[in-house]
Amino acid sequence: MDKKLVIPGEFLSDDANLADEGTYVEEGKVFSSVFGIASLKNHVRVVPLSGKYIPRPDDMIIGIITEVSFSNWIVDIRSPYEGLLHISEFPRRIENTDMSKYLKVGDAIITLVTDVDPSMKVELTLNDQKLRQIKEGRIIDVTPSKVPRLIGRSGSMIAMLKNETNCNIFIGQNGRVWVTGKDKDIELAVKAILKIETESHVSGLTDRLTRFLKEEKDKKEKGPGKEHEGKEETRIEEQKEDNTEENVEPAEEEKQQKVQEKAEEKKSGGILDELLGDEK
């Protein structure tokens, strides 16, 4: 197998040109620099099993406002370094005095890292259609190094999760995950995400997770309301302005919920149907 658990200082390869993240080169040989999972395909890299988020340009992350200063919002980005969101990076022109009317301490935002300088000054922006404030749903924390695993190969894991739980899920590179949907669904999604986090290094994760979701659903005596196509279409990307999308979203959600309920009624063979059938 070309993947294995390695400790810091473990010898990985003789070819210094293959060295990638999580490794260091000494005397032409590649060694692991972290405790994590090494993959030796193409490039030699080690993905740590734990560790803090270190910001990089173009990372899409979820931040929480910790301070409003003269012309910057100071944002907690779950890293040793704080993020700076300058007033000019807000989508609209606003006055210094009005800053906390738009974003106040404790507000969560989806934001983009525009620049990180050598002294780790992190600059953020909200100037993009995808970027905005988070107003509903739940935010949970996972280990940042496990984000790729949570997303899956070309988004397979997250697409499956969205489909199965009927939630909309956004994963920030800094390990904050934003889940929206019905309360029950959110709960299931959160459970599943935490399961992925604790078992990310064990093989066959996708299969086990599918089984887990099925079991959880059966436990809750929910009907087999799995097949909702098109649910995972990211709503975030379609909207243009903060205010309009606030109005659109609930309506859209309601519609989807109704469709879902109808679908559940029609389907047969579910535990719910059996119970209802008995009563009738």
Partner: peptide
């Protein structure tokens, strides 16, 4: 330190 995911040359 290793458990915290901190990069090190060795233990």
């Amino acid at each position: 330190l290793a458990d915290a995911g901190i990069p090190m040359k060795s233990l």
